[in-house]
Write a protein that binds this DNA or RNA. Structure first.
Lengths: 335, 335
DNA sequence: CTGAAAGCGCTTACAG
DNA sequence: CTGAAAGCGCTTACAG
């Protein structure tokens, strides 16, 4: 049990050459039944476990797919990672996760490490690596990106229409009679945040509602910033009856801030989020939000990588955002 | 940029042997300044990236630490993984994550894969692999386990006192005047669930409160089971004024069920969870719970692995559970 | 201080 | 169908 058995040891024990054992292991060629059986018996007896490193070095394929995520503990990315796991399951390829923390340097290091490890393909989830860097990686191995859109590599990018999602969220509030709708935006430099803000503005414009800069505060996509922004909104001079937060985590923070100020959701203030995290169905009240099919996105991206690895052209299904109506919004009360 | 530069190419370009380049890369021996400079220049020029596979195969060390987690998207394990990342940061070792989903077969496969990959050490987070299996792994590589206690390997196991945590939670409710306290337990076969149930019973006994089996329902540690259990409790004939859920996720479900039944927290029913997930500070009301320092546990486990890798004996700091008082509990109202 | 050589454990043409 | 041999890209005694 102590040290590991090698191919050569198996070959000797079974009375065949290492090549033969290798061929049986990989199904690479026909082998006589007797030899096959003899080998398979010793394989089991010795409990042989191939050395993945040697295999990768010799064969040129590691069966590893590098997955660059941003935060290993993020509920949002976590869901995508599960999708990736599922999409890869049974294919023989295994994911190798690494986090970039939205830090260009860290991301670059992670990508380099993955490449040094000779991953056969790469899956990128968000991040801030410049397009050029990603394009370079794509030149070396099959690459699929989630949450990004690389020019020239459109067919390898999976990105939902954030602008449209934000539009739906805001329009929903407008349809309920709200005219003074605050927006807690995400990190200003993030493309997703920009798109969501744009969708919000578009819906307002569509309804002939003027844009009020005082009603838009920037957050950082985390709970606390939603709490802070909402506290400021309530204490500020701007009037509002609804809030559209650029993601669910900030909506959670907003909800708590309203609670602290004695404002009820949805009776006093309506609240909408974005993402539809697993927890959003269990907040009180359950959160109305824009669903991003993250899990499916992870799966689809993994499948696409598999296709490319098999020499086929990339193909990604169209995935739509969807407004999920729960209980955090209500018709604006007269008065 | 296309294909990768090898050590041999660098050596040739710099006019030295491969051995020398290797030594410079690894700081293995003294090298004359001129050669060192020449090599370092070409290294940079050619943008050399060592092949990790070859390195691992030749050197016998991969600088990889296998990390077996259960669910890559779990908020609880996710926090621990972040701790592991941090604990390993800067050490040169990188974590390789794999999920077992509390499935013995999957766990075994994951562990075997990690071993086939020649990880230098292993970190185990929970799971259902029998002690014997883990002991065997521990015989091959340095191993640290979180959330398990392996006989004979106590110094390599990090596990909080679940019984005590549950005791604290229950006693807190008792001190607030509650006498009819329901418990939503975890999966009966899980050691953690058993210990927490035990702590609950102990606190009751300590206070001279009789144990009422009707007030204990089993869940599966997920939100929905907490919702279901609570709904059944409210609809059942048993009287209760407080609930202690065996983890925060079930407490979230319980909170929603109470909300649906028109019961207020904490005015009508007090609620306590276990774990102190990141989200628990943002529920409405913020959840009183038993804090497990998961992040610190991940860090400490990683540090311990590093110690063992350096040839030192394992050492793990004592980590305590702690009752975090927030706003989901209140003194039992008269009547 | 520094090379040449062997070896890590596999795979894969190359011959039969 | 099946071996012997070369090679993947490194590291590390072994000699100088």
């Amino acid at each position: 049990m102590e040290s590991s058995v090698t191919l050569a040891q198996v070959a000797r024990a079974a009375g065949v050459s290492a090549s033969t054992v290798s061929r049986i292991l990989n199904g690479t060629a026909n082998v006589s039944v007797e030899k096959r059986e003899a080998v398979e018996r010793t394989l089991a007896q010795l409990n042989y476990q191939p050395n993945v490193l040697a295999r990768g070095l010799a064969g040129g394929r590691t069966m590893n797919v590098g997955v660059l995520t941003q935060d290993i503990s993020s509920p949002f990315y976590g869901e995508a990672l599960r999708g990736v796991e599922q999409g890869l399951a049974g294919s023989g390829y295994v994911p190798v996760f690494m986090s970039g923390h939205w830090h260009e340097k860290e991301e670059t290091e992670a990508i380099d490490l993955l490449l040094a490890r000779r991953v056969d393909a790469m899956l990128i989830l968000g991040g801030v690596t410049p397009d050029a860097g990603l394009r370079e990686v794509a030149g070396r191995v099959p690459l699929v990106a989630i949450g990004r859109s690389l020019p020239d590599l459109g067919r390898q990018c999976l990105r939902v229409d954030n602008r449209h999602g934000a539009f739906l969220a805001t329009r929903h509030l407008i349809e309920l009679g709200h005219r003074s709708i605050a927006h807690i935006a995400g990190i200003p430099s993030h493309r997703d945040a920009q798109d969501r803000l744009e969708g919000y503005r578009e819906a307002l414009a569509d309804a002939g509602i003027g844009f009020d800069p005082d009603l838009v505060l920037a957050g950082d996509f985390l709970e606390h910033s939603g709490f802070l922004a909402t506290t400021r909104l309530v204490e500020g001079r701007g009037f509002f009856t609804a809030i559209f937060a650029a993601n669910d985590q900030m909506a959670y923070g907003a909800r708590l801030a309203l609670h602290r100020k004695g404002l009820r959701v949805p009776e006093d203030i309506s609240l909408v989020g974005f993402d539809d995290l697993a927890g959003s169905a269990y907040t009180c009240p359950p959160l109305t939000t824009v669903r991003q099919p993250v899990h499916e996105m992870g799966r689809a991206a993994a499948r696409c990588v598999l296709r490319m690895l098999a020499g086929q052209p990339p193909a990604l299904p169209p995935l739509q955002v969807q407004l999920v109506l729960r209980e955090s919004t209500a018709r604006r009360r007269a008065g």
